[in-house]
Design a protein around this nucleic acid. Structure first.
Lengths: 124, 124
DNA sequence: CGAATAGTACTAAATAGTTAGTATGAGACG
DNA sequence: CGTCTCATACTAACTATTTAGTACTATTCG
């Protein structure tokens, strides 16, 4: 089936989170991790992981019995794309308004911000 | 049809952006604004606005000929909910990693951050 | 060996979201 | 007054995403 979304969809993200945590996984690994949180079928996880492979988020290599999957792209890059997509869609591409929301609605102190600012200065 | 998403979907957001810009709109107003950007049918816009009314994002009052819609919730509140949802889904609820992404991937200077921090200090 | 187990591929279908057509009615207007 | 225009309600259908069943193959193990 053709997929439209360029960034990860909700369920794809859930699976990628598990993959990034473990770095190297089988379908069973992901299945069992997800099962702890919610009911899901093994084949559902398999289907999603196949889609993720087609979309170049995962790569697999046949080790012995089961396929072994690993991330095809670093976490930071993928999440970064999601952030950029969100900023584009919701804030028409400008990050400042999002910052303001974060400061107002989450408990971010001035100190948090200063620390980030410091980090920014160190790596210009 | 039953809707699942609690926050605004992509197309719902596009329409709400137009509504917030104008504050008081008819279906035709929104339709014509959207048309400038992409092909869309009048009835499509109408359907979406009806859904938005059901979801309590819009309220309408029959003024004379056409229904007049206005936002049922302030922009900041709705966008804030979207930000919170995003932070929950992508960052498991913690805002700091999102901040780091914003700093690294968008062109946010240390000065920007300091200004936000100042704003934060003024309104604790 | 032969049954149970674990894995994959292929396929189907349910759910969510988006788009738009058709019927219908009320007011404008020649 | 009959017709044109614009608006709505209802409905249908398409696309995207998610979920999972079934058939088949290889491996394990008593």
């Amino acid at each position: 089936m053709r997929r439209k979304s360029t960034v990860l969809t909700q369920q794809e993200l859930e699976i990628m989170k598990v993959v990034w945590e473990h770095d190297t996984v089988t379908v069973r690994d992901v299945y069992e991790t997800l099962l702890k949180r919610r009911k899901v079928a093994y084949t559902t996880v398999m289907t999603m992981m196949k889609i993720l492979e087609q979309k170049k988020y995962l790569k697999k290599n046949q080790t012995d019995r089961a396929h072994v999957y690993r991330p095809a792209q670093p976490r930071g890059k993928v999440i970064g794309a999601m952030v950029r997509d969100f900023v584009n869609r919701v804030f028409n591409g400008s990050a400042e308004p999002l910052l303001v929301h974060l400061v107002e609605e989450h408990d971010l102190s001035a100190e948090d911000l200063e620390e980030i600012a410091r980090l920014r200065k160190d790596r210009p």
